[in-house]
Design a protein around this nucleic acid. Structure first.
Length: 770
DNA sequence: CTTTTGAGGGTTTTT
DNA sequence: CCCTCAAAAG
């Protein structure tokens, strides 16, 4: 909203190809965009929104739903580049965060406090475990995790506890699984969440759906508000999410300005209820309203070799929307396949290859990613990257907000904001230890159950032995004082006071172990985080004032994942993450590791055709992250639960076209000079890996050229016949140059090297003509 | 009520 | 292999 005269608007439309431009400018009516990997999907989405605003729409009329906070942030940033600070008023965010925001405003309609708690996965599991115990069921038969999935999937399919109890099919399934009482657990679970003023992740969707369903005046409000609705990664929406979106745009007299963007081939979240059926349904649901479909088929990310491989792989799936993904980036490097004897060697070989690529192609760490099927696989790669002195960051696993020490303080804060929060209560009632043990807590729980009151209220009234009573009063006092203080104090002051008065701060201060120090650091970091939340001038809504309350803070962080904790951002590090987590990202060089039957594809998915198809889509996602170099690896044996297991190579490897694979890949006795077969042997026999420094690094460590006088020449000057200087390899003679413009590869003979022939991509290499 | 010790069990993927 | 959770001792 700058009052300065608008500079000539950037010709953002010029940055688009024909189909992209149509997808951007067809603003009215239903639009379906099928977007292959690397086809400029995000660009279309962001420019479309920018275009809407340039055309006169108000930012707050636009609802853009994504799956990750990162995607939302990126979208907003990119829109801001076109339209300026107005972008901050767009309703762009994850389904969960935006819906939470609406629910906060409308909570009273559905009998929830507006400062409701959001239960994370741990809370959910803990509550389910509690209920299972209360019902005297065997926790080995009724596993909290399994029940959680069952309930989650029910909610995702719009099944309430009541309809669950009447659903013969579900009941039969439960019976078959020897868990006939899931239905009762579900009912109880929902009651308990309600009583605690808490919603789990699925509730954020389901409760909103019910709200829109049952309150005509509310749904009307949001229908009028959101004139344009966009959904990213539409193939990953579940039935419930689509039902909500439809409720918002599908009604009498609606302009039906809805745009969904997705790729059926990249649907990888069926396990949490996502269904490609939504794409097909979308076409049906809106066909009579002039739906327009655009297919983005040109891949701007990857070499032709990689695209061809991806196409060949996905071709093994049966059901898919017809499209032809293509690239004009030249063939580039072939795909390398690495086979090793065991997971340890796989780790080392990958680290080794990373080092090689960095030197040969002048890649930075941040150009490189290692992608695996399960997070547990990261460990070995971390180990070798550390040994090779390669900086890295592991994504996934537990996020900052899931650490014990962080959750402890958060639980106190949650209790201040919402004294009915049962899980928070149970977490901190006796932590730090204050002498309220299991028996006392048991009394509180049973009183709360009888009287249908909150645990916190029950604690006030329950009869306890003097000692425990005293402790309980102290605890109540801490919480109540903070509650009173919350009227005047900032979230930070409150948190700081709680940290001291609860005894948590002292507890962590007094822990002088190594881990203890780390915990204290995290604890402090949390406080700092709250402080910056309070101080930073976050975007103000046009409708609402910036909300700095503790309740808002808590609801925000409940929806953050590991990706949202910044910190080492902008550092030059190799990325390690699961394939799932890598969706939407791209790297110059990608290693897809652990390509073995029962691992990738996962054993869990192997008994059904749909499961296999999803695994294959996952593999498709993995390989299409690569721009230039793709390396696939597997090991013959691998440790699992400390036991060695034999593995067949993944069937997906056989689906990679042979002509796309580097011919030496399959041979262990490759003439790869970086490779030392003897070291390999030694490792195999002794189980000891020779120190990394002896290999790889030493070979490349000292530059053969003095950097001072080195001046890279433009790639045009690199032609067959000239003598050149390379930073690492020294002096050499170019024997030939091939590959299309922009992807030229020079073959150079460096006589100083053990293996003198090098193929170097001119795009990256720094070569000086002599 | 707290601490220690041992057995058993779990690994797909995430908001 | 590692972590969580339950029983038994302090």
């Amino acid at each position: 909203m700058s009052s300065q005269p608008t500079v000539k608007p950037p010709h953002y439309l010029d940055e688009l190809n024909e189909v992209q431009r149509q997808a951007v400018t067809t603003t009215d009516g239903p639009v379906l965009v099928i977007a292959g990997p690397g086809s400029g999907k995000t660009r279309v989405l962001t420019y479309r929104i920018a275009h809407l605003i340039e055309q006169g729409s108000a930012p707050w009329e636009i609802l853009a739903l994504t799956f990750t906070n990162k995607a939302a942030r990126e979208m907003k940033d990119r829109i801001a580049k076109v339209v300026g600070p107005r972008a901050s008023n767009i309703w762009a965010g994850t389904f969960h965060s935006l819906f939470a925001r609406i629910l906060r405003v409308e909570a009273n309609h559905i009998g929830y406090p507006s400062n409701f708690t959001i239960y994370d996965t741990d809370d959910t599991k803990s509550l389910l475990g509690q209920i299972i115990r209360e019902l005297s069921l065997d926790p080995k038969v009724y596993q909290a995790n399994a029940i959680k999935n069952r309930i989650s999937s029910a909610k995702s399919n719009l099944i309430t506890p009541k309809s669950y109890a009447l659903n013969e099919e579900l009941l039969a399934q439960d019976k078959q699984a020897k868990m006939p009482l899931v239905s009762q657990i579900y009912t109880k679970y929902v009651e308990r969440c309600k009583r605690a003023g808490a919603m789990d992740f699925d509730d954020l969707l389901f409760r909103l759906y019910e709200l829109l369903q049952n309150h005509p005046e509310v749904v009307k409000k949001y229908r009028q508000k959101f004139r344009y609705v966009l959904v990213d990664e539409f193939q990953d929406t579940n039935t419930l999410q689509y039902a909500i979106v439809k409720r918002l745009v599908q009604y009498e007299g609606s302009p039906r300005n809805i745009c969904v963007v997705g790729d059926d081939a990249q649907s990888i979240y069926a396990f949490r209820g996502a269904t490609i059926q939504n794409i097909l349904d979308f076409e049906n649901d809106f066909s009579q309203y002039g739906i327009q479909t655009f297919k983005l088929e040109q891949n701007y990310r990857s070499t032709e070799t990689i695209v061809a491989t991806a196409n060949a792989v996905i071709g093994h799936n049966s059901r898919q929307i017809q499209k032809k993904i293509w690239s004009d980036k030249g063939h580039g490097e072939k795909i390398r396949v690495i086979r090793e004897m065991d997971d340890n060697l796989e780790g080392r070989r990958v680290a080794d290859t990373i080092l090689e690529q960095k030197n040969r192609f002048h890649l930075q760490n941040q150009d490189i990613a290692i992608l695996y099927r399960t997070n547990a696989q990261s460990r070995i790669f971390e180990e070798y990257l550390r040994r090779f002195n390669i900086a890295y960051r592991v994504y996934g696993g537990l996020s900052f907000y899931q650490r014990k020490e962080v959750k402890d303080l958060i639980a106190y804060l949650r209790l201040v904001v919402n004294p009915n929060d049962e899980e928070a209560f149970r977490r901190v009632i006796n932590f730090p230890k204050r002498g309220i043990g299991d028996t006392s807590v048991g009394k509180v729980i049973s009183l709360a159950g009888q009287q249908s009151m909150s645990l916190f209220d029950a604690l006030r009234h329950v009869a306890l032995p003097t000692r425990a009573r005293h402790a309980a009063d102290g605890f109540i006092d801490v919480i109540e004082k903070a509650q009173r203080k919350s009227a005047t104090a900032s979230a930070y002051e409150l948190a700081e006071a709680i940290a001291r008065r609860s005894g948590l701060l002292d507890f962590y201060r007094n822990d002088n172990s190594i881990e203890g120090m780390g915990r204290l650091e995290n604890f402090q970091a949390l406080l700092d985080g709250i402080k910056s939340f309070v101080e930073e001038d976050s975007v103000s809504d046009t409708e609402n004032l910036p909300d700095k309350s503790l309740a808002t803070y808590l609801q925000n962080i409940a929806l953050l994942t590991d990706f949202d904790t910044e910190g080492d951002e902008s550092k030059d590090v190799v990325t390690l993450m699961s394939v799932h987590a890598a969706k939407g990202l791209e790297f110059k060089s990608v290693f897809v590791v652990g390509l073995e039957e029962k691992l990738f594809p996962s054993w869990m998915s192997m008994d059904s055709a749909e499961g296999m198809d999803e695994e294959r889509r996952l593999f498709y996602v993995a390989i299409t992250r690569a721009e230039l170099f793709l390396t696939l690896s597997y090991a013959n044996t691998r440790y699992r639960y400390g036991k060695m297991t034999m593995n067949e190579p993944s069937r997906f490897l056989a689906e990679v076209p042979a002509e796309a694979v580097e011919s030496t890949s399959y041979s262990r006795r490759s003439n790869d000079h970086e490779f030392d077969p003897l070291a390999q042997q030694r490792a195999r026999v002794t189980g000891v890996v020779p120190p990394a420094r002896l290999r790889g690094t030493a070979k490349f460590a000292e530059p053969r050229v003095d950097m001072e006088n080195f001046q890279p020449s433009p790639s045009e000057e690199i032609v067959a016949g000239v003598r050149v200087l390379h930073q690492k390899f020294g002096e050499g003679k170019v024997t030939k140059v091939d590959g299309g413009a922009g992807n030229q590869i020079a073959t150079i003979h460096f006589s100083d090297l053990a293996q003198p022939e090098k193929r170097i991509m001119l795009k990256f290499a720094k070569l000086q003509v002599l």
